[in-house]
Design a protein around this nucleic acid. Sequence first.
DNA 1: GTGAAAGCGCTAACAG
DNA 2: CTGTTAGCGCTTTCAC
Lengths: 349, 349
Amino acid sequence: MSGVTIHEVATRAGVSASTVSRAFTNPQLVRADTRDRVLQLARDLGYTPNRAARGLITGRTGNIGVVVPDLANPFFSAVLKGANARAREADQIVFLADTDEDPGVEEDLVRAMAKQVDGIVLCSSRMSGHQLHELMPSIPLVLLNRREDDRPAVLFDNVAGVRRLLAHLGALGHRRVAYLGGPRTSWSDRERRRGMRLAARREAVDLVELGPFEPTYEGGLRAADPAAATGATAVVAFNDLMALGVLNRLAARGVAVPGEVSVAGFDGIPTAGMGALPLTTVALPMVQAGRAAIDLLLERLADPDPDAGRLQRVLDVDLLVRSTTATPLAPPPTPPPNPPTADVQGGRP
Amino acid sequence: MSGVTIHEVATRAGVSASTVSRAFTNPQLVRADTRDRVLQLARDLGYTPNRAARGLITGRTGNIGVVVPDLANPFFSAVLKGANARAREADQIVFLADTDEDPGVEEDLVRAMAKQVDGIVLCSSRMSGHQLHELMPSIPLVLLNRREDDRPAVLFDNVAGVRRLLAHLGALGHRRVAYLGGPRTSWSDRERRRGMRLAARREAVDLVELGPFEPTYEGGLRAADPAAATGATAVVAFNDLMALGVLNRLAARGVAVPGEVSVAGFDGIPTAGMGALPLTTVALPMVQAGRAAIDLLLERLADPDPDAGRLQRVLDVDLLVRSTTATPLAPPPTPPPNPPTADVQGGRP
DNA sequence: GTGAAAGCGCTAACAG
DNA sequence: CTGTTAGCGCTTTCAC
């Protein structure tokens, strides 16, 4: 908090505070030698302008806030990598906060941050549409991985992702695919379900929807048995963490993966050792998404009233076949023993 | 940045700004009904005090900075979880920054943050002692996982950790153990090497030190072959990420783990699926360390000139036997074919 | 090209 | 109990 003030620099340099200020913010307004002397002295003294005080008057702090539900989720670390890098290029610094998946905490944090940053990137916000709208007026907000009307947002093309995934599975001969859903409140989950239905129809595969499950490794462990019981030869999980759980549980049951069953996930999380797993996944460009979110925020700050909709970016996703997703070993077993409780869709149009 | 100001609240409530201010910071100084009216109105308007402006006068912002080299490292996400939780209890908010392992960036970030936070927790700082000392006067600093003279710090008891680990391995009959070292500049690595030497002597096992290696999954892949060539029946890696790489490479070579070789790591990173791996590890209490760092910082802020040394905490570490670390299959092969290039230590005193 | 003065949003005396 | 005054560190008119 404490530190060297502009006044000390000014006094020692034998100039006024205004001149020191100008040397930093408008160098061309200061005579070269004065400027150099001031800047050199500032460096020696370890002076850095107080961004908070500056913000008080300019309305710009040079800080950008990023809020995530859970820092331990590799998805968000990847997003943050991108956001950080882009922010640094723009000479902004990123302040990060973790809401612990709590919408109440999320709101408090945004409020507390609001005055200290120029704008906030909300990643996979858990807040209600109502809360979001209440917050909007107090601070420029960019959503990541969530759409809310036509607010600025960075989104992934989930529908295209599952289409590619199902095309891949279909080409290999899979005719019955289970989808293990994530949280009902998740925008991504809704999009992926929608995409799965479209793609299943198109590929003429039976789709079995299960869930919701917790979007975690444990959730995957729990989802594996119901998934196997559907008689599906391929399982698509809501995210990589769940897919990992499924793989593990199936392995424990002695099910051959890939072989009897193929498992696919979502995210493409960069975890050590993932490369060795028989896991095909829809890879989301998380780092790029982080960059894009900062881009959007900077644009919005430059032009506070842009055309609505101009500030939404939908990012392309890739299919990452980490190991051969196998052709089903045998024709899928005829009608599964325990018909799933979830609804069944698909079949030729 | 923008938002409702204290003045608007004051005007609408028919009181002065001071009263509003007091309602927030010293409620007992305001008559109950006035206070309630003001607070209610503030809530309705969505007013939150501007911490930056407040900090300008009080010298306290209510923000705490945490700086890490790499957010993608699960070690730091875990630390951050703890720090966040503790900070929230103290009604502080954590601003986080990622230095991308660059000491220059680290210094810049600390400087930029300094004026906007009350203190900073530097995790595994990559800065030189010189840089660190230059920064000290400008802002209260707490180090985590690094010792620098008697500056406030949270440290792990690495020496005790390796002692426990070697005792475990020794009891199982391992008589030759390889240590795969991390970065030379790492304080942890130096401590672990020191501890390994002490413990090896005490347990009467041969210690083979290798490295330095990159403290990553890839580093582990590269370290595996040299480690196997030493004829050691147990391998201790600098961290879990490396251990994972070793496991993978050994599996690819068809080496039985545990069996021919046992692998141990450091950290106890909470990655999905880790529990299923045959990996014994020294588990560092990372969440607790995050909490402790905030504690230290709060203490230091309350008492700016504490007894030197009172503000260092050394945290106990646990041995986490994730799966049975096996007894060596056979008496270790007599003199290894390729004597290691690194120095060999150990043997009975 | 540079300084003096005013004010950003807030809190801390000091009066009343 | 509450309002008035001053000023935190900085930038920005407006003079010179």
